[in-house]
Design a protein around this nucleic acid. Structure first.
Lengths: 342, 342
DNA sequence: GCCTCACATGGTAGCGCTACCATTTGTCTG
DNA sequence: CAGACAAATGGTAGCGCTACCATGTGAGGC
């Protein structure tokens, strides 16, 4: 006779313990916890009492194994420290905090291959939904997303061909709007300064370029970029490079706010008047843009809302009513400030 | 006769499929994947070929259920957008990216009760290790940590009574060092400006106070705090309040760098000379501190390293050799810059 | 040649939960 | 009052994997 294996779980109460204590079948406990409406009032109370007394917490692993579906949202972002993604992730967490869903974050480090690998790993858990940043998945990653068997939301950008659902805005339009604003303000030699240059930055650049070409003012020497990750200090350096290359520069549209802040600091240090000699526009509109002196014009994006909206869409798809609107454009807003007011 | 339940997993290959294809037992496949050394060279190759061909990825849920141990690191932080924690988390991710361990992040929102709730949830998965921010757990949370049955690393701070292991530094000493530096630089009416005021900020404040009292210069009216979350714009507002309360202020030690930047901007806006009229010291030394104009003195903390070190300690504890040094103090470094150079 | 022992491999029995189906009970119809 | 049917509950059989033990094999010692 084989003795039952010693409790591996370290003596944690199981559903069977609860069932015994409440004097019901294990299934009824399971149901009482997941679909309370299908269990009579009496039993439900009785079971809840047993759960509380024993301190029972269901094992999510066993649950996932038995139901072939883990209560997990897989989230793939290219960076954890970039404030922009941190805000999206915060939106996701806040929207999911009262739900039974856990969150599993993957950091792709801006690499398509790493994204593909993580998708493979995430897929093995059969997540309830997947939220991925960007629309430029590798063909392999795209296939994994299509076969994930769960709702998928691509966030940060909108584009023509969603895997499933999308929440974001047009980075091209954002870039164009920023450049047009500088043009309207009377700036002419308007540079583009960009770090990292991920696909979204590329599209902002393309928008900038479209505006400059439309005005007949485009010149490739106006563009200064680097694949190095963005930072305030990098903004300073890139601005120096840009000025060295094109000393008559009178405006800059920056890839993002960190870069813009670096540019502003360098201007102050070099006694270049902002906005008189140089106009500056950032991107994302972090809190500090409105506080800096001078305050910096920036393109406000709705990062937190992207996170909350993505979750809302995924949840309703899980619940069975797929949103009629599969692509949600949350837009952006140009915030005009002192740095371009001349 | 009962027909086998239709494959819930959506047709994903299982370990049995691999075993069949490789012509071995399922156990041997399992071993080949987890302890390659215990399977002969030949079989290992054969099995690997079958795995590749089928695209087999082990189901982490089944694995966790069978082995009573999930390959998950639970990480509890009070904020996802605060750059400081984002860097710690990044360190954790980077250190774990080549390991089989997944990461589960919980956002406590600076709430002890929420921390306790999350610990309960995390515990139900039987994680391989837990990393929690801070040393001020509620008694309930502390009990959960002690009974977690896995290595626990408290990060960000050091203190006398670790649950298990600790990596961080003394916020008290950091605060004192900052204040002493301002005193040495000749400032006298040195204010403390703090937002959020979580336990770590409280200890920085205590360090500041100790230094000021030692110098015979402490005055409660020098302290301006708020429970509101920190931001650059808040730094500006708090500085205004501080000045209104104490117009002769000649220095400020800020809770963190965001606040310090806000103070700097407000000084520029109000034509207050930094460092002549006001000296400014921040905390954490974010990248922008060295770039701003004037550059801002700050207490550099080793956030990324806290993350990597915590993982290293947890991993070696999992491997069975608990580090002899259970409390690791990574210290901090005062970065003297223009904002206090008068 | 027998015994011991390490090494390689496999079979069986669960881990804790839920899908599926069966059973029981009560209620409503005609 | 039989028959139909919904609601409430339970039993059984896995989900995919690994712990535990058993078995087989060959090397080495005496």
């Amino acid at each position: 006779m084989t003795r039952p294996r010693s409790r591996r779980g370290g003596g944690r109460p199981t559903i069977a313990d609860v069932a015994r204590k409440a004097g019901v079948g294990a299934i009824t406990v399971s149901r009482a916890l997941r679909e309370p409406g299908r269990v009579s009032e009496d039993l439900r109370r009785q079971i809840q009492a047993a759960v509380d007394e024993l301190g029972y917490v269901p094992d999510p692993n066993a649950r996932a194994l038995a139901s072939a579906r883990a209560e997990v949202f897989g989230v793939l972002v290219p960076s954890l420290t970039n404030n922009v993604f941190a805000e999206v992730v915060r939106g996701i967490y806040d929207s999911l905090s009262d739900s039974p869903f856990r969150i599993q974050i993957g950091n792709t480090h801006y690499s398509g291959l790493e994204e593909e690998r993580l998708l493979q790993v995430f897929g093995s858990q059969r997540p309830a939904a997947l939220i991925v940043a960007g629309i430029d998945q590798t063909p392999g990653a795209r296939r994994l997303l299509e076969n994930a068997g769960c709702p998928v939301v691509q966030v940060m950008e909108t584009g023509p061909d969603p895997v499933d659902m999308m929440v974001g805005f047009s980075h091209f339009d954002g870039g164009r709007t920023a450049a047009e604003h500088l043009l309207e303000a009377g700036y002419r030699k308007i540079g583009f300064i960009g770090a990292r240059m991920d696909p979204r930055s590329q599209r902002r650049l393309a928008g900038y370029r479209a505006a400059m070409e439309a005005a007949g003012l485009f010149d490739p020497r106006l563009i200064t970029t680097t694949p190095v990750p963005s930072s305030v200090s990098l903004g300073r350096e890139l601005f120096r490079d840009a000025l060295a290359k094109m000393p008559t520069l009178d405006g800059v549209f920056c890839n993002n706010d960190d870069i813009a802040l670096g540019v502003l600091f360098e201007c102050r240090r070099a006694s270049i008047d902002v906005p008189k000699q140089i106009g500056i526009v950032g991107f994302n509109d972090l809190d500090m843009m409105q506080v800096s002196f001078p305050s910096i014009t920036s393109v406000r994006t709705h990062r937190y809302e992207i996170g909350t909206r993505a979750v809302a869409m995924a949840l309703s798809a899980i619940a069975g009513n797929r949103p009629e609107q599969r692509i949600v454009d949350l837009g952006f807003e140009l915030k005009r400030r002192e740095s371009t007011a001349r």
